[in-house]
Computed example of a mutant assay.
Amino acid sequence: MVHRRTLLAASLAAPPLARAASAQTGAADGYPSRPVAVLTGYTPGGVTDTAARAVAERMQRELGQPVVVENRPGAATAVANTAVAQARPDGYTLLMGTSTLAINPALQPTLTPREPMRELVPVGMVFRTAFVLHVHPSVPAKNTAEFIAHAKANPGQVNFGSSGTGAVNHLCQALFAQRAGIEVTHVPFRGGAPALLELRQGRIQAMFQAVQEALPVLREGTTRGLGISSAERSPLLPEVPPVADTLPGFDVVFWQGLFAPVGTPEPVLARVGAALRAATDDPALRARMAEQGVSVQTGDAAMLRDLLARETESWGKLIREAGIKPD
């Protein structure tokens, strides 16, 4: 008969790495045994919320427990980001993080988490969505090259709208102006809807806007599409070429990915990652989101980690060079 004291001694005698591996192996046993919360830093109804709910609905079929999306807007998504970074690392509180994780450290360094790369663990990609450069019909440009020529001939006279200082479409515009060597006037708004209204009225002349938001006015002819911000064409606007055709290498998108708190056991991350891959691989979900101009991405943790690191560096550099400050 083997005594409990003997088993305990054998366990303590095992190498530390072996004990850690044993603990990790058992960490996912029974996971999940209760609902999983997925936090998003956006209000209900937008693309980020819609995508989060579609993915969560599909993930719960894999996990066998409800996956509940919780909207925690505020402080440029920092409310949701911080709540997850500080949550118990057990896999029951996850984050639908976005491009703001790469922007906030340079734009608003007082917001937490100050170092998302150290405080959050990437699980996998969810989606990418591009912006379309569209202009009021009064702008005498039919393509990106002509628009750049027009802006160069009229320095500072083109009013370029955005959904807010530091928003991805603002940074897209700032990078565009830097790469094109043009001077434009940035006019920030509180969201894309009021900016679009001003563009329709001709009080601003141009803006980069999410394809799905710009589509109605483009189809009615109120504005004219000149270029797509991603390296590839948008399936919703196949006739509009990428900006990269004029400015090689230009590739700006808004992205969303799933994160967990640092310290979440590897077996739990693997379980969540497998459920996420099943969701993003689902043809029905992909087709559903494509109708909204969203390209669902199946990417592993390494892809999301590389993206966050790369954009944290590139957006930080642009923000510093352009002297961009929050409102």
Rank of each mutant, 00 (worst) to 15 (best):
G249W: 00
E266Y: 06
G221M: 04
A244M: 06
Q212M: 08
D245Q: 14
A260Q: 09
L236N: 06
V211P: 11
D245H: 14
G249V: 00
L258Y: 04
P216E: 01
Q209S: 11
V240Y: 10
L237I: 08
L236D: 02
A231R: 15
Q209R: 14
M207K: 14
E213P: 04
A210L: 13
D245N: 12
V211R: 04
T264W: 01
V268P: 13
P235Q: 06
V253K: 05
W255G: 05
E232T: 11
P235S: 12
R219F: 00
F250V: 10
S230P: 13
A206I: 08
L236E: 02
P238S: 15
V240F: 09
P238N: 15
P241N: 14
P241Y: 14
G221W: 04
Q212N: 11
G225K: 12
V268R: 09
V243C: 08
V252L: 04
V268C: 09
G221A: 10
A210V: 13
P242I: 03
P238T: 01
P235F: 05
L226Q: 08
G225V: 02
T223S: 08
P216D: 07
G257V: 00
L218I: 12
R219N: 13
P242R: 13
P241V: 14
V262P: 05
G263F: 04
W255E: 05
D251S: 13
S230T: 04
A231E: 14
Q209G: 10
P267D: 01
F259S: 03
V211F: 13
G263I: 00
Q205W: 12
L237S: 13
V243G: 09
L218V: 07
S234W: 08
W255D: 07
D245M: 10
S229A: 15
V217S: 15
P261W: 04
Q209V: 03
G257E: 00
Q212R: 12
P241M: 14
F208S: 05
L236C: 09
T223Y: 10
V240T: 09
D245V: 07
V217K: 05
A206D: 08
Q209F: 01
E239P: 06
P235A: 13
V211K: 08
V243E: 03
V252C: 09
T222F: 01
L247I: 15
L269W: 03
P216F: 03
P267C: 03
A214T: 10
F259W: 00
G221C: 11
L258A: 14
Q256Y: 09
P248Q: 11
S229G: 15
V253C: 11
F259V: 03
L247R: 11
R224T: 02
L218A: 07
Q209W: 00
T223L: 09
G227S: 14
M207E: 08
L236Q: 13
M207G: 12
M207S: 13
G221L: 05
E213T: 14
L236S: 08
L215H: 11
T246F: 15
L226E: 07
V268H: 01
F259Q: 06
P242Y: 08
E232Q: 15
P267F: 01
V268L: 03
M207Y: 02
F254E: 03
V252D: 06
L218E: 05
P248M: 04
L247F: 13
V243N: 09
Q209D: 06
R233S: 06
A244C: 12
V268G: 11
P267N: 04
V243I: 15
F208M: 09
G249L: 01
